[in-house]
Amino acid sequence: MSNQFDQIPFGAAEFADNPEPRCPCLLLLDTSYSMSGAPIDALNQGLVAFKDELAADSLAMKRVEVAIVTFGPVNIVAPFQTADLFTPSTLATSGDTPMGAAIEQGLEMLRRRKDEYRANGISYYRPWVFLMTDGAPTDSIVAAENAVKSGEAAKAFSFFAVGVEGANMDILAKLSTRQPLKLSGLKFRELFSWLSASLSGVSQSQVGQTVALQSPAGWAEV
C-alpha cells in the first residue's frame, strides 16, 4: 500500500531547471572535540576552496552534487545540492565520534537521492562517499561496515576513507574495501583541490565509465 507514495513529481523543479546528469559526492566529516583548533580550521578552509574550484567549471557546477554529514553528534549540514547552490558553512567541533551512525545516515540519504533521480528521469554517475576522521568510532560500526561492503559490491557507490593524524587506520581499513589514505599534515586544501579536479573529470566523462584518477600524492602519505 505504500506504492502510492513512491513517485511525487511535484517539486521536481530542480530537475526541470537543470536536467544534466548528476555526480553525487557525500562528505562524512568528523567534527568531534579532537578536531578542535588547527584541524577544524584547515577543514573549513578546505571546504571553501572546494566550492571555489568547482565553481571554475561550468559543467561541474551543474553536475556535481555535494552533501555533508558531520559527526559528533550526527548532523546533516547540507543535503544533496548542485555545486552552484552549495555554500560551505563553518563547521564547529563538539561531542564524540559516532562514525557508524553517520555512515548509516549518509548512505540512507544517498539512497533516497538516487530514488529521486530515478523518479525524475535523471541519469547519474557512481556516487562518491568520502569519510574523514581523526579518531576511532565511539559507536558500533558493524551495520555501517556491512552497508559499505554491500554498496561497494553492488557498485552503488565508491567509498573512500581518509585518516587525519590520530585516526585508527586499522578500523578504516576494515570499513572500506579500498586502502584508506592517511592525510599528510593538515593538507585538507590539497585534498579538496584534488577532489574537485577528480569530480570535474568524472562529470565530463561517460556515465558508467571508470575514470583514471590522479594520484593523491599531493595530500596523502603514500
Binding site: 546528469p21 530515478r118 523518479a119 528521469g121
Partner: peptide, 16 residues
C-alpha cells in the same frame, strides 16, 4: 537528454 527517462524495470537504466 533523449534517452534519460523513467525505467519501469528494476535496477538502473543509464543513458548509454
Amino acid at each position: 537528454h533523449p534517452f534519460a527517462g523513467r525505467y519501469a524495470g528494476t535496477g538502473d537504466m543509464p543513458i548509454s
